[in-house]
Nucleic acid binder design. Sequence first.
DNA 1: TATTCGTGGGA
DNA 2: TTCCCAAGAAT
Length: 356
Amino acid sequence: MPNALSNQLLSWYADHGRSLPWRERPEPYAVWISEIMAQQTRLETVLPYYRRWMTLFPDIATLAAASQQDVLNAWEGLGYYSRARNLHKAAGIVVREHGGQLPADPTRLQSLPGIGRYTAGAVASIAFGRDEPVVDGNVKRVYARLFLVEEPINTPQGEQAIWSLAAAHLPAGQAGNFNQALMDLGALVCLPKQPDCPACPLNAICLAAQQGKTGAYPRKKPRPEVPHYTVTAAVIRDQHGQVLLTQRPENVLLGGLWEFPGGKQEAGETLKSCLKREIREELACTIDVHEALGIFRHAYTHFKVTLHAFHARLATERFELLYHQAARWVPPELLDEYPMGKIDRMIARQLQDNTG
DNA sequence: TATTCGTGGGA
DNA sequence: TTCCCAAGAAT
């Protein structure tokens, strides 16, 4: 049903909505890719990746036929790499089980890997014109302020409250535009820190704005402190100057990406004894640890790392993969072909700078 | 249900 | 510098 809220919002959206590549002609594949990339990621960050991706993998069949290596390379830097792995898997399922066409039904969409309640609603409403609500960070913030939602939005109770509000205010027949309008409003006007209430089309009906309480909403349960780990990594070279890269398992942090092997320092260990132990545990071999290559700091979502990288050589003839999926001796100039997380990419770059 | 999963930009 | 947090999903 149309209502005051949706009328104001849709009218604002017609004038102020962002122009985005997948909005020109919202085809299911384009909308799907944009939604997966945009999970926990700002659109300004997404845009260059999205353009490159659509060039590399212009349709579902091309994506399904690509190698995981190519897919992860295209995703490198975006983070949350299970999104890329699941996207690749889902493309295969769509080709094999859905005749190559993304299903329109939100329940079927949600059965695909990487598509949850939000993304199913987004694709169904934006690409297929279904009357389905969405709830993302923007929607949570907007509704929490409009109606003074007291439950913290990062709890199941708070999320449920927002989903109910989103469903209740959805205008029939215009869900796609309404959902995108809500998200644009959250991203452009109803900002977390300094909302621009005078510019907001919902100012007149917003309880938080009327009561001067936008700073207190949405309520949030505080997150626990993040630990800080000291980590080591080995840049192991052979007699040809190639370096040993190892590929991390699936379904772990940075799953499927390549790295310089190593790991967390334990109590009472020196950096070098830590590195020798980690290499023994992961590769069943002994290394000679040489000079330090550098110190790299990086902050993940739930912990921080200071990584000490060392040059090293194998002291034993062979090694064995006790943790990783694969290992490869790689000439430094070819390191770019292997998808890596940020911190290992920093090591690789320094290596290439040193080499030449 | 709580935790785990990246990275970059802005305050 | 540090903290927040952004078109969430999976386990």
